[in-house]
C-alpha cells in the first residue's frame, strides 16, 4: 500500500458515499423523484395554462412559479425520509456497530453522513429545480416567467435548497430516534401535521407567527414568490432559509449529542 492505513475524515466520507451509492434503492428513489417532480410540474403548468386561456385566472409570475414548484411540497418528504433512512437503516440492520467500531469517535460518522446527504441530493435537486422550471415555463409559453424576472432565480435555488435541508432534518431526526418507523412518523408529523394543528391549537394572535417558523412553511417561502396570501404573510425567503437551517442544525446537534453519549 502506498498510503498509510488509518482513519481520516475524507476516507470516511468516501466510505459513506459508497454505502449510499451501492444501494439500488438510492438510484431508484432519486431517479423516480426526478421524473415525478419534473413531470408533474409540466402537468400542473398545463392545467394552469388551461385556466388562463378560459379566463378563470389572471397570469402572474408568482402563479407561474407555483405551478413549477408545487411538486416540491412532496419532494421535501421524499428527501426527508431518505435522510432518516441513511442512519436508521444502520440501526435496523446492526451495521451501526460495525460503523462505530471502525470510527469509535462517532461524531465524524454523522458529519460524513450529512456531507454525503448533500453530495447526493444537491445534483438531484438542481436537476429537479431547473428541470421543473424550464419544463413548466415552456408549457406556459407566453404566460411563463423567465429566470431574469425579479425573484425567480432565487425561487429556483430555493426549490433546490429546501428539500436538501429537509434531508438533513430527516438525518437529525433519524439519529435522535434510531428507529425507521418512529422517525418517519415524527418527520411526517413535523412536516404535515404540525402546520395544520397550529391554527386550532394556539391563540389567534400568535398562531400565524408560529406557523411561519415551521419547517414546511419556511421551506415553501424559499420556493414561492409573493410570500403567501393577503391574510397570511410568510417570512422572507432569506429569513425562512435561516430558520430552516436552524431546524436542521437543531436536530443534527441533538442527534450528535445522543450519538456521542448513548450505548450503540
Amino acid at each position: 500500500m502506498t498510503t498509510t492505513t488509518k482513519l481520516t475524515f475524507p476516507r470516511l466520507v468516501r466510505s459513506e458515499l459508497t454505502k449510499q451509492l451501492s444501494l439500488r434503492s438510492t438510484w431508484i428513489v432519486m431517479g423516480v423523484t426526478i421524473l415525478l417532480a419534473v413531470g408533474l410540474s409540466g402537468v400542473i403548468a398545463n392545467g394552469y395554462k388551461g385556466a388562463l386561456r378560459r379566463g378563470d385566472m389572471v397570469a402572474s409570475i408568482p402563479d407561474a412559479i407555483a405551478s413549477a414548484f408545487l411538486p416540491i411540497d412532496f419532494v421535501i418528504l421524499i428527501l426527508g425520509v431518505f435522510g432518516v433512512l441513511q442512519i436508521t437503516g444502520e440501526y435496523s440492520t446492526g451495521l451501526i456497530r460495525a460503523t462505530l467500531t471502525a470510527v469509535p469517535r462517532r461524531l465524524p460518522v454523522l458529519a460524513a453522513k450529512a456531507l454525503v446527504q448533500i453530495a447526493i441530493t444537491l445534483p438531484v435537486m438542481l436537476v429537479i429545480a431547473f428541470g421543473s422550471f424550464f419544463l413548466s415555463q415552456a408549457v406556459l409559453g407566453s404566460y411563463g416567467a423567465s429566470l431574469g424576472d425579479a425573484g425567480v432565480f432565487r425561487a429556483v435555488l430555493g426549490a433546490a435548497a429546501a428539500p436538501i435541508l429537509m434531508g438533513l432534518l430527516g438525518l437529525g431526526i433519524g439519529t435522535v430516534l434510531r428507529h425507521s418507523a418512529g422517525a418517519i412518523t415524527t418527520l411526517v408529523a413535523i412536516l404535515f401535521v404540525l402546520p395544520v394543528l397550529i391554527a386550532p391549537a394556539l391563540p389567534e394572535r400568535i398562531a400565524d407567527d408560529v406557523a411561519k417558523l415551521t419547517p414546511t412553511v419556511t421551506g415553501q417561502a424559499m420556493y414561492t414568490l409573493g410570500g403567501g396570501t393577503e391574510s397570511f404573510v410568510m417570512l422572507s425567503a432569506a429569513a425562512s432559509a435561516g430558520v430552516l437551517v436552524g431546524w436542521a442544525a437543531l436536530f443534527l446537534l441533538g442527534g450528535a449529542t445522543l450519538l456521542k453519549v448513548r450505548d450503540a
Partner: peptide
Amino acid sequence: KSIHKGRTARSHLTSLAQTHGI
C-alpha cells in the same frame, strides 16, 4: 448479518475498508 440487505458483500466490505484507506 450486520449488513444492509440491499448491499453486496463486496460493497459492504469496501465501504468499511475505505474508512481506513484499505
